[in-house]
Amino acid sequence: MKILVPVKRVIDPNVKVRLKSDGSGIDLANMKMSMNPFDEVAVEEAVRLRESNLATEVIAVTCGVSACQETLRHAMAIGADRAILVETDVQLEPLSVAKLLRAIVEREAPELVILGKQAIDDDANQTGQMLAGLLGSPQATFASKITIADGRAAVTREVDGGLETLECGLPVVITADLRLNEPRYPSLPNIMKAKKKPLETIAAGSLGADISPRHVPVKYAFPPKRSAGVRVADVAELVHKLKNDAKVI
């Protein structure tokens, strides 16, 4: 069983985003970049399935600029066997990514595709569901547990009211929630090994997908800042303020 894991390069979750001075976009200059945290979870899960002999190969794929190779090396340091960069300078929307991934799925024929549930930059939470739709495959989103047995997947999902478990045939598209696992830190030898693993580059244009943007960003802005309020000395003052100033109790 082959597993395909789409990963995205994003601004590191621990750094503060900046806007370009004219409000026309996010300032990416000199930003620390990382793999989207949900995608680290997805790679870890795929690697564990291979380590327990339920999968034979883990392929990491990313769509984007040439610098995304770094992200693919990181995926291979966690344990992916090889990687594919679908290279383009076009600003990609989830629909475009899903179309490019469909072409890769058709080429590689994986039984399992595990994506992150959302990219922490655009917070779109779309790509996995879109890919499943384009492929006509079942989907199991927001996974906190995956069990593969007898050619079927049982996926426990984090839903609004608690948890639910879906059973689907393969191939299936799964998106990973953070509680699926705790991704490992790649060891130094594995980081060195990852440098020698195969990384193929494919020009996005050669895949025949329409990736023209459908959204025109009009403006980027910071939300109004919430100002810090007051410190209260004790519970009595707090209750007094909630009752008389804020009038919320």
Binding site: L19, D121, D123, H215, P217, V218, Y220, F222, P223
Partner: peptide, 12 residues
């Protein structure tokens, strides 16, 4: 976007 740290206005 960005965990609510930025608001983007988009035209579809």
């Amino acid at each position: 976007i960005y965990a609510g740290n930025v608001l983007v206005t988009v035209r579809s």
